[in-house]
Amino acid sequence: MNSPTRNFKSNNFKSHTFPKQSQFKNPHSSRLAFNFSFLTASTQYNLKKSNKNVDKKIRLKLLEKISILSQEDKVLVLGYPKDQGLESIPEGQVNLRINKEFKESGRYDECEDDYWVFRLSKKGRVIGKISNNIFYILAIDPKFDLYKH
């Protein structure tokens, strides 16, 4: 079977093979990307193995939800009903100790004012901040106790 290349001959150079034009498309920078770098140090709200509140089912649901939310443009995800997409919560209503490094790095100042939350069905919810298309995951709330709702 012949490869998808073209051969050109010229007086100036010997036979040269040129690859077929690339099939890659531009990346979708308007889709959400998820960052776990700044999870809270509070053991009951992070993914450390010592956190008995976050079991394998919650971890699997988290991965599933991130996969779903990252498949569409951010504008569409923000328009989903709150049980399927994201919900904005004023920062003053959330009782969360933010990772010190998140604030010191300047990322906190780059983010929108409110927290953003997505649900993991009845298994919990994820709380974070958004800067452009990056969703910084700051806490996993399996007991629904970081804010009243």
Rank of each mutant, 00 (worst) to 15 (best):
E110Y: 03
G92I: 12
A139G: 15
G128P: 06
P142T: 14
E112H: 02
E91A: 13
K129A: 07
I134N: 08
K123R: 13
L138I: 11
R97F: 10
I137Q: 02
I140H: 05
I140N: 02
E101L: 10
S131L: 09
F102G: 01
R97M: 07
I98W: 14
I140Q: 04
E101Q: 11
D141M: 12
E101R: 09
F102M: 08
N95G: 00
K122T: 13
N95R: 13
G92K: 15
K123Q: 13
I130D: 03
S131I: 11
I127E: 02
R119V: 10
L138V: 03
L120P: 01
D109H: 13
G106H: 05
E112P: 01
F102Q: 06
S105V: 08
K123Y: 09
Y136T: 05
G92F: 12
I98E: 08
N133Q: 01
L96N: 03
F135V: 07
E104W: 10
V94H: 09
K100I: 14
Y136W: 15
Y108H: 15
R97G: 10
F135S: 06
S105C: 08
F102V: 00
I130Y: 08
S105L: 10
R97Q: 05
A139C: 06
K129M: 07
Y108C: 02
E101I: 07
G106P: 02
E104P: 10
G106M: 04
D113Y: 02
Q93F: 06
R97K: 07
L120M: 08
I130A: 01
P142D: 13
R125N: 15
G92C: 15
F135H: 13
R125C: 13
N132Q: 09
N133S: 13
E91S: 14
W116P: 03
K129C: 13
K103G: 04
F118W: 11
I137G: 00
Y136N: 09
R107W: 13
R107T: 08
E104A: 14
